[in-house]
Design a protein around this nucleic acid. Sequence first.
DNA 1: TTGTACGCGTTATCAG
DNA 2: CTGATAACGCGTACAA
Lengths: 245, 245
Amino acid sequence: MMNITIADLAKVTGLAKSTVSGVLNNKEGFSAKTRQKVLQAAEKYGYVPNEIARGLSSNSTGSIGLIIKDITNPFYNHMTKGVQEVAEEHGYTVFLCSSGESHQAEIKHIQAMVRKRVDGLVIAPLLEEVSFDHIFALNQKPVPFVLLGKIQGLECDTVEFDDYGGGRQAAELLLESGHTRIGFVRGLSTSRASKLRFEAFADTMRQRGVPIDEKFIFDGAKGLRTASPQVPGWRKQKRRTALPP
Amino acid sequence: MMNITIADLAKVTGLAKSTVSGVLNNKEGFSAKTRQKVLQAAEKYGYVPNEIARGLSSNSTGSIGLIIKDITNPFYNHMTKGVQEVAEEHGYTVFLCSSGESHQAEIKHIQAMVRKRVDGLVIAPLLEEVSFDHIFALNQKPVPFVLLGKIQGLECDTVEFDDYGGGRQAAELLLESGHTRIGFVRGLSTSRASKLRFEAFADTMRQRGVPIDEKFIFDGAKGLRTASPQVPGWRKQKRRTALPP
DNA sequence: TTGTACGCGTTATCAG
DNA sequence: CTGATAACGCGTACAA
């Protein structure tokens, strides 16, 4: 029950490999008879083109890599959905890799994607308290990539968020509603988003002359407990379900 | 800035391709000097093995395909996380495909995965009101797969859920708490899980002699609105965030 | 210990 | 219009 190849098809139809390949790729210039023969044989034997082989000669794989932190985080799974929809529209498939907030995992995944010769990469990297050597190294390679967040001194495509602005808006909303005892839950120390949002919050509070009570500042939140169903007893299931990165 | 190959390394070191390959694959029987030379050159020129080429001759890709309905559904993203963790432990990478409740998309994705010659496939297929021809066809091919849910007349690996039991338990819990005006929100008609849960609910109600009020039965729920952050304005963003399949 | 030749499945380039 | 042949990058026998 091996996979049938173009050579097999050539043998059974009595044609040459190149002819079979041509017909299968809808090239011009083949007699209707030949076309028929090839197509019928392909159908009959359940021929499925081997994209690995195709990729080797065409030097492209039709795959892109997406490296995120945690697929159970709604921010990332919505983003993944979007990436996937667009990829699909363009005939691409996506490799999903989760770094799980581990710098080592991030490095490993990027290398794996390069080994698999993806046609492109979308990366949501850890942005604080880590080195970016692996990203600079990636930049020396032929594979194009987009980063979620800017890296100092690296000229490349990025998607950025106004985390400072968001933090300010949130603080202002609460202050304008007349609140003064406002708390803040910070995320992991590797999250630049969390850092910026907190800075904005602190700046806004200071500007309005409202003191921050340290009792209400928390650190290292890895997620929000939600009402989401959980896969019961899945290993040491780390919950990390609703906090944007 | 092309990708560097084993042949390039052979050229710059003045060694043979097979020597380079041997060293890179940690084979026995090479002088320390040769080893050094190869490793240094590989490092210097940023050599990254081409898994496409490797896959072509080894007839394996180190990738598995995962076909689910919607990655923003917590049931599926937790499942995806699990699949991914195990895959990674074994040195595999996963292709993520979302069928989005479309039978056509499911078929298309399965074919794409076969073309990409994944080493295996995990599929959460639509189970009601659809044909299974594509699954039977898949079963004729060399690629192993696991299904979420059983298909009549198909001998293959499956993972199953006790949806009927769950529906019964839920009904019993409410009845035993003294409730009688109980509603039920059914999912899509292609969801067997939803169908079975409703049957269990209806059976339980009947057995207890509690009448079902049709006013409280709803159909076609595609998701639960949650407090999850949304990617704002992402196309016609269909929300489908928290209902198990 | 090292080098050569072939196969993996496709595509592309030439001849016929 | 069709057929032979050479890449593509790697592994793996086999030979030197």
